[in-house]
Design a protein around this nucleic acid. Structure first.
Lengths: 216, 216
DNA sequence: AATTTGATCTTGACGGTGTCAAGTTTACGA
DNA sequence: TCGTAAACTTGACACCGTCAAGATCAAATT
């Protein structure tokens, strides 16, 4: 009959956690239900992850890695502002893809913020965004960890994602979250680019070309 | 002896909830502990609030009211950008005053977003911020619920507050969160005040009139 | 090849939680 | 005065996370 040992429990538990988060949300997550779905006893996860915080921390680290990948998958372009805008949209898209996962990533109460893997992947995601900010502001590439511009960019995309997830942002009529997000990020990105000008002024015939650089 | 009936349980439970949130955080909140602190049995809260979501929803509504008050307490000034900046700092200050309370306000999984009082007080807080945005952009005050500029402002302050609470924003050396927040918000507020919407809207003497037709 | 060893997983128990059902106390209006 | 409804309690149930102790199995050692 099947082996007493599972063989790949650690990974299976992470997968089960993902399903569970998608179905029941972060508040409905349960370690026992997680073990149940992986087909093991309710204390099996403890041996691999210690406790519930350990499992969720591991899952969050994997989630930050996915976010970093999603951000670095945005193609580089000639228009730095547009690249930042696209990265922002990619950020929000990743968050909305599995809202409970995104909420977990930022719920310090339920995971261990000092976990090495979590910090590493978190910094990786941050670096993607910070590089885009550096490009649009015309400053040399690795920005400092506390850079105000990069922090503002991160706060903006995080705020947009979190407010959308919690249904606190009312979308204008006939406007998708993507269009709405693009509009907000266009303003933000444009505010850094020299000659702060909003690209794409709407769909009413106004030519929405490259934002002209026009600051002395 | 003291009455069998508590008399003011509803309010006492909200106070106990506040203490509990301050001590144990949102994850450590417990309805039974809440009742214990109010000196009643563990099922007493149900009669007033139904279930745990009911109590937390009522507390969140009170919290949004406090936020709206904190925002409207910011003195109006001649410089619209500075007013918006100060409101943003007041917003973040309120969030940091009791982080668990702020996290609760935006944790849709644990409260009832369709609660009338919650929605009402939430809109009140939104209106304060939106009015400041209207002033700095020079548009007529009440902005529509889905206005992108107001939404960006809200997302920014929410993002700053949430990232600070979750210790995801590294502060530059010798810089308080207030100074850091002021710096980010100064850029954001300034990006509107400069009239960055229309290319032809130069900053030379234009009295900040109606910037542009965003919607026909 | 037999045995030890250690990682993996299970069974069982404990205290804690939210919520339902039923009973007790109290205030208040008919 | 009395009954009725609101306020609150007692008790139970299922579920949760975690600890302790035991069972199983692969693999290295002897």
């Amino acid at each position: 009959m099947s082996s007493y040992h599972h063989g790949a429990l650690a990974g299976a538990l992470l997968d089960a956690a993902g399903e569970l988060l998608a179905e029941k949300g972060l508040a409905g997550f349960s370690l026992r239900e997680c073990a149940r779905r992986a087909g093991v006893s309710h204390t099996a996860p403890a041996h691999h992850y210690g406790d519930v915080a350990g499992l969720l921390t591991a899952y969050a680290a994997r989630a930050f890695a996915g976010l970093a990948d999603a951000l670095s998958a945005v193609p580089a372009g000639s228009d730095a502002a547009q690249v930042l805008q696209h990265q922002g949209v990619a950020y929000v898209r990743y968050a909305l893809l599995l809202p409970a996962r995104y909420q977990l990533m930022f719920s310090s109460g339920t995971l261990r913020r000092d976990d090495p893997a979590l910090q590493r992947e978190g910094l990786r995601a941050w670096a993607c965004l910070a590089d885009a900010v550096a490009a649009v502001t015309g400053r040399p590439a690795p920005l400092t960890a506390g850079d105000p511009d990069a922090a503002l960019a991160w706060a903006a995309v995080h705020g947009i994602a979190d407010l959308l997830i919690n249904q606190q942002l009312q979308l204008p009529a006939d406007t998708s979250w993507e269009a709405h997000t693009e509009r907000m990020l266009a303003h933000l990105a444009g505010s850094w680019q020299r000659g702060a000008v909003l690209p794409e002024a709407g769909r009413d015939g106004v030519p929405s070309g490259h934002p002209a650089a026009r600051e002395p």
